[in-house]
Amino acid sequence: MAHRFVAVGDSFTEGVGDWDERFPNGVRGWADRVARQLAKADPATEYANLALRSRVLDDVVEHQVEAAVALNPTLVSFFAGGNDILQIRIDMADVLARYEAAVAKLATTGARVLLFTSYDVRLSPLLEPLRIRNNQFNRGIRQVALEHDALLVDHWAMRPYAHPRMWEPDRLHMSRHGHRYLAAAVLRTLEVDHTITLRDLGDLPPGRTPREWLTDEWDWWNGWVRPALGRRWRQQPEGYGLTAKWPQPIRPAEGMKKQARVRV
């Protein structure tokens, strides 16, 4: 039986931040990179990516989990719940219960299930409560991984992500560097050799003066936070109208950019 990798989730898995117009939805991302490396190890490898940006946990469960199960994966990745944490009011215990139910359903396929913690992104001192939620969510994810014998990529513990070049200016999405590092981490977890080159990003930038800090915060709130809140208020989240990148399994060994052109 050929290996079949199915990726489920939100912008983290769709690949937002790893911009490349040669790929569907204009992004590549860690999952596409992992699929390509798996295909190098086994050209018969198949790959589907159902993830879509801005999706909350219930939306991922409703529109992706059953579809993933129907594809009979041998490996399925699951990352969801990060957009729920950004809501003004949530019940973290309820979010974790729904998260675990989704993982349990994916585990019934007999596939290896791959989970991730969320990095401890320092968004802004004004949003410190989100860090507390994120840490609580990560503790729950680690427990779910143990209970369902899932593979875990502990993104939270990866020190290279302290470098700002690993992130997009919105401070939420990984940059191309971040996606490459994560792809390499996933392949290490899967014990698969890879040819991904990880660049030295140099030293951390020097500390900012109070004036520089205020300028950066103002630019971030006006450039990213306010537009995101506006889209949420209009119920038109980022990526509104997009469809999944690879809804049906492809063979990455046959050329992903080539197959993307055929799909268009």
Rank of each mutant, 00 (worst) to 15 (best):
A2T: 15
V6N: 06
A7N: 14
S11I: 04
F12K: 01
E14Y: 03
E14H: 09
G17Y: 03
F23K: 02
G29M: 06
W30S: 13
R33P: 00
P43L: 10
T45S: 09
A51L: 06
A51I: 04
L57T: 03
Q64Y: 09
E66T: 15
A70V: 01
A70G: 09
T74C: 11
S77H: 10
S77E: 13
F78S: 10
G82Y: 04
R89N: 12
I90Q: 07
D91F: 00
D91M: 05
D94G: 11
R98S: 10
E100T: 11
A101P: 01
A104P: 06
L106Y: 08
L106W: 05
A107T: 14
A107W: 11
V113H: 10
F116N: 07
F116A: 09
T117Y: 02
V121W: 00
S124C: 05
E128P: 00
E128F: 08
I132A: 09
N138T: 13
I141T: 06
I141Y: 05
Q143V: 14
Q143P: 05
E147V: 10
E147I: 03
L152A: 05
D154G: 08
D154C: 11
Y161V: 11
M166K: 08
P169R: 06
R171V: 03
M174L: 12
R176H: 07
H177M: 00
G178A: 07
G178I: 05
R180Y: 04
A183T: 11
R188E: 14
R188D: 15
T189M: 09
T189K: 14
E191P: 03
L198F: 08
D200Q: 03
P210N: 09
P210Y: 05
R211L: 13
R211H: 00
E212F: 04
W218N: 08
N222D: 08
G223T: 05
R226K: 12
P227N: 12
A228G: 08
L229E: 02
G230Y: 00
R231W: 06
P237A: 07
L242F: 08
P249K: 05
R251I: 11
P252G: 13
M256W: 06
Q259A: 12
V264C: 15
